[in-house]
Simulated scan of single mutants.
Amino acid sequence: MANELTIPLLPCVDIDEMASFYEMLGFSVTYRQTKPNPYVAMRREDCNLHFYGMPGHVPEESHSTCVVIVEDTGPLYEAFAAGMRAVHKKVLIAGIPRMTRPRLRNDRYTGFVVVDPGGNWVRFSKAAQEPEAKTPLARAMENAARQADARGDERQALKILEGALKKADASEDVTEAEAFRDELIERITSSGQRPDA
């Protein structure tokens, strides 16, 4: 088999809300229908995402996900972030919808996640693996990214990062780890929880 094209079909409450969200990220509507079933197809370059309206769908309880492999996650993240800033005046990092920053995970791939208004986790991953982490803090960052950005367990990620920051060597640059810790705290508190609970 060669030259196949696989397109995920993901659930949502409202196809118009999904279209607006993805248009903010630079996608275009390629197909839309309201009857007999709500359906919208979105495309950005070679990335196709399709959504169907599902009565009773609860975004916070969604288990839907897909992976989009890209050459480099950095420029794509920046384009998505610019779209969010243009509409919301900030990058949405907590709640639904939200987007994580590109981070190296312990599977050696750099990636970021867009959680859309339907609660679907669209995972953008760099095609090539990165070199192995050299320091305990770098390995902790990867583990924290796996917990928070892949599994949605911000509390466990925060524990990992806080432990690693306490043990960090004075020669290590902790700026990125501290920024990630602050983001995790914001994500936890925006969900109505206390970070230390």
Score class of each variant (00 low, 15 high):
Arg155Gly: 12
Asp46Ala: 14
Asp16Lys: 15
Gly152Gln: 06
Glu60Thr: 08
Arg44Pro: 00
Arg43Phe: 04
Met54Leu: 13
Met141Lys: 07
Asn106Thr: 01
Leu158Val: 03
Ile7Gln: 05
Ile96His: 02
Ala144Pro: 03
Cys12Ile: 10
Gln129Gly: 13
Arg44Thr: 00
Pro38Asn: 05
Pro117Cys: 07
Pro55Met: 06
Leu137Phe: 07
Ser171Ile: 11
Phe51Ile: 03
Glu45Arg: 13
Arg146Ala: 13
Asp182Asn: 14
Gly111Asp: 03
Tyr52Ile: 02
Thr135Ile: 10
Asp72Asn: 15
Glu60Gly: 11
Asn120Gly: 04
Asn3Met: 13
Ile93Gln: 09
Asp46Val: 06
Leu76Ala: 04
Pro97Lys: 07
Lys167His: 05
Ile69Ser: 10
Asn120Trp: 03
Ala144Phe: 09
Asp196Thr: 15
Gly192Tyr: 10
Ala168Arg: 08
Arg139Lys: 15
Cys66Val: 06
Tyr109Leu: 11
Gln129Val: 10
Phe124Ile: 05
Met42Asn: 04
Lys89Cys: 02
Ala164Cys: 10
Thr189Phe: 03
Pro102Met: 04
Pro136Phe: 13
Ala82Pro: 07
Asp107Ser: 10
Tyr77His: 15
Thr100Leu: 12
Tyr109Ala: 01
Lys159Phe: 07
Phe21Arg: 07
Val68Asn: 03
Thr6Ile: 15
Leu5Val: 13
Leu10Ala: 11
Arg155Ile: 10
Arg108Ile: 00
Arg32Cys: 07
Val91Phe: 13
Ser171His: 12
Gly163Lys: 14
Asp149Lys: 14
Asn143Gly: 15
Thr65Gln: 05
Arg123Val: 00
Thr34Ser: 14
Phe51Lys: 11
His63Leu: 10
Ala144Lys: 07
Thr175Met: 09
Gly26Asn: 04
Ala150Ser: 12
Ser191Gln: 14
Met84Cys: 12
Glu78Thr: 14
Gln129Trp: 02
Ala86Thr: 08
Ile69Gln: 09
Gly192Pro: 13
Arg123Glu: 00
Thr189Val: 12
Asp182Val: 06
Lys166Cys: 06
Met42Glu: 00
Asp149Cys: 13
Gly26Gln: 03
Thr110Asn: 02
Glu4Cys: 08
Glu45Asp: 15
Ala81Lys: 09
Leu10Gln: 10
Tyr39Ser: 04
Asn48Ser: 13
Pro75Leu: 02
